[in-house]
Amino acid sequence: MDRFALLWADIVKLWTKYGASYLNGMGNTLVLALVGTVLGCLIGLICGVLNTIPYSRKDNVVKRFFLKLIRVVIRVYVEVFRGTPMVLQAVFFYYGLPYFTNNAVKFTSIWLVSIVVVSINTGAYMAESVRGGIISIDKGQTEGATAIGMTHWQSMVHVILPQAVRNIIPQIGNNFIINVKDTSVMFIIGFPEFFSAHRAAVGASYLYFPSATVEMVGYLTMTLISSFLLRWVERKMDGSSNYELVQEDQLTLTAGTYTHPDRGTPFDETSKEFEKGKGEN
């Protein structure tokens, strides 16, 4: 038990000295994860929609060429950014650009480069999620829209995407939580997020494990709160499950319909035998 007491004492020591820096790091982590996820979703949405524009053999060559080109470009983007670590992507963007352009082009804001890297990385994952979301919607929905004369874009905007987006909300939440944790690699280019606060604190105090404990608890707190909030948003979006049924459907099993089961039998209210039968009882 005294080990735990020691750990607690160390944590208190760390928190009194570096508490502000930890909290600042948490704030930056959350902002970066949030902005990166939102922008990444937008990128993913655009890619997913462009990826699913239908074309047939009857379309002209130029249109078919462009649609195929778009698919190839998106495919390359997804494979490259999904297939390489974000920590290296950050290094490539931050150090690669000035290296190749002889310092002519470089990111001056560490915030900007971090947001760009996280967004592009998230976008690569979301592009596939959105594509999956779109193709998972029943083909009948598109056919229903086509049959009343709606164009591809109209049915996308009003019918398919609202349903697809609802279906991929768990994926978006997933990506946000992954981003909360994975933005920790941004310390590599000096972004002041939560994990870099740990590195700074450890560098000065040598309390490596106690600081790591602070980090663990801090990350778990952030992700748990995010999970609860995301669930709440999902429930809100689905709306109330209660629905008051209106019981004034004139056609469902009322007399006079095409094949009412009692039609022409003594149980038919319109028949004379019905009245007679009532008198007997």
Partner: peptide, 26 residues
């Protein structure tokens, strides 16, 4: 398409819209 209407075996109502919206969207 708007002149030649179609009713499907599987209804194909827009499941993200209510009855009224289904009828006004087109």
């Amino acid at each position: 398409h708007s002149k030649v209407g179609m009713v499907f075996q599987s209804f194909n109502l827009f499941s993200n819209h209510n009855v009224m919206e289904n009828c006004v969207l087109g």
